[in-house]
Design a binder for these strands. Structure first.
Lengths: 326, 326
DNA sequence: GTGAAAGCGCTAACAC
DNA sequence: GTGTTAGCGCTTTCAC
């Protein structure tokens, strides 16, 4: 392994000059610069990030803390973070927290010892003060930690669009599958639903239901049996919508003729269902990319324009809703 | 931040003694041990991994190189690696390679500079020599790099089970959706299919088709139109199977009455389809967990029992096949 | 058994 | 503009 010392020797200058040149801090004469450049090339020198970290107390590691990469929402997010990280020279460490505050703290502590540059955090259980005191740049996804921590989230109020899609297609008895009650985004979606439905004369009912396929299926199955008049379901997540679709099949309701369904998320699976799932699609990749860029700006002490980034959501019409009425 | 020096001072011993005690290398008297232990506790000392790395040239980072975390096969794998990594004190770095050898090399190089402890690699495009020369512990998934590199893979020959499931349920004209031809596991599945089908009197045809939903759908749609006699499809992946199922719907073939479908993979999505997808399920989590354990053993210079780990596969019967004939 | 000291590869005062 | 030097926090000879 070739070190900065080797380069200095070969270039006939001191290590300080080499370091200065390489980090362009301080003045370096053109001559010295050339000598160093060619020495670096000949020796194929590449600086050692560990040694560097040791005295700058910085690294180019960023931590991605999420509940569970296995949840279909996160892989795309992780991909985005990794992609933009890569282009800016950052390496991403994957942390599955299972929403466990202990685990989260643990990650933060161990990674801080490695002088981690910053974190992107998706979590709902986390205790805000802990993050607030982390003294490391953080950006949050879908969740406010405090006013100083930038947050990026989907425009969950886009649930209005999903609701209207049902309304416009003639639904008059709508079932809303509400997500977990402590979940911020789920609540915003609920608000969106309410706003839209209140502006209509449709009947509705709300059932809370986890973002879990089998559970949702069971729940919807029961509701559908008790309330045969239901002609539309808006689910706060695609997984729940998939459960609803399956339930409809089981109780023998034809989708979309007798029952129309709209999900929220836009995961790939939606397309594969039959009929294809109409959904309010988030741009998860974009969320991740923005989060990563904002984080990197904070790490590099660059100005960030805002503290709140909302990425728009899009209605994707597929087979679980009927032809429009326009 | 408290350092080893602080501990030494507090304990009234030298830093060398503290270090020796903490890494239990070399002799340390009981007295000294006690003093150090309590100093550590009082000061809440935790050693600095960066400083340590700098002179041991080791770290507890492991790299997980995979084509694309967005592909439904990988999140579970990543989860497993992270889980076992965590329990052994390793941190995992996520690397999406897109099967691009340049990107792979890049990751390997940058991470080696960080003294990465080892890699878990899932890839097909990689050039074996490059990995072979990496001088870092590696374990491969589903792919042979060379005899010295341990490999863990599914028992892809389990495709025999999938084929037989179709055969036993009366299929006599089977379409096999073969995966990409340079893909090792895909070929093994093909072999399995052939072995089973040759032992039968059924007709069959083979079509190559990427592990991609929309493409598979299109391909199967066409084949089904040209060959209405097809009564069974075995797909080398669940995504392809999902495409086939959708195609069946479009050309108006009832599943499973007129056409039965079996996939391979066992991804969560299979359950959400209607009817649920019968499939040969891999235990992806287990593959990842084994890979991680083997890697860690190699890193820690422990004996490893074998160089080839094959994890069994399981037939999961759902709605795309009929009731058995037993 | 233990401590002094060198050194991992780099950065950053500080003096020239 | 440039070099000397003192660390960053730790491990590891080597002498006692």
């Amino acid at each position: 392994m070739t070190t900065i010392k080797d380069v200095a020797k070969k270039a006939g200058v001191s290590v300080a000059t080499v370091s200065r040149f390489l980090n362009d801090s301080g003045y370096v004469s053109l001559e010295a610069a050339k000598a160093v450049t060619s020495a670096v090339e000949e020796l194929k020198y590449e600086s050692n990030p560990v040694a560097r970290s040791l005295n700058t107390k910085k690294s180019n590691l960023v931590g991605l803390i999420l509940p569970d990469i296995t949840n279909p929402f996160f892989p795309e997010l992780a991909r985005a973070v990794e992609d933009v990280g890569l282009t800016y020279g950052y390496t991403v460490v994957l942390c599955n927290s299972d929403e466990d505050p202990e685990k989260e703290k643990n990650y933060i502590e161990t990674l801080k010892k490695k002088y981690i540059a910053g974190f992107i955090v998706t979590s709902n259980q986390l205790d805000a003060p802990h993050y607030a005191n982390a003294k490391v740049p953080i950006v949050a996804l879908d969740r406010t930690i405090n006013e100083k921590i930038p947050i990026v989230s989907s425009n969950n109020a886009g649930a209005i669009m999903g609701t209207n899609a049902l309304l416009e297609r003639g639904c008059r008895n709508i079932l809303f599958l509400r997500g977990p009650e402590k979940l911020n985004p789920a609540n915003d979606r609920y608000e969106g639903f309410l706003e839209a439905i209140r502006n209509s004369d449709a009947h509705y009912q709300v059932v809370t239901c986890p973002f879990h396929f089998a559970d949702s299926q069971k729940i919807v199955e029961n509701v559908l049996k008790d309330h045969p008049q239901i002609d539309g379901i808006f689910a706060s997540s695609d997984v729940s919508a998939a459960g609803a679709l399956k339930a409809a099949g089981i109780v023998g309701k034809h989708v979309p003729d007798e029952l129309q369904i709209v999900g929220f998320d836009g995961v790939a699976m939606g397309e594969m269902l039959s009929p294809g799932l109409t959904t309010v699609a988030q741009d998860v990749y974009k969320m991740g990319a923005i989060a990563a860029r904002v984080l990197i700006k904070r790490i590099e002490n660059k100005e960030i324009e805002q503290n709140f980034y909302e990425v728009p959501v899009k209605l994707v019409i597929r087979g679980t809703t009927r032809e429009g009425m326009e």
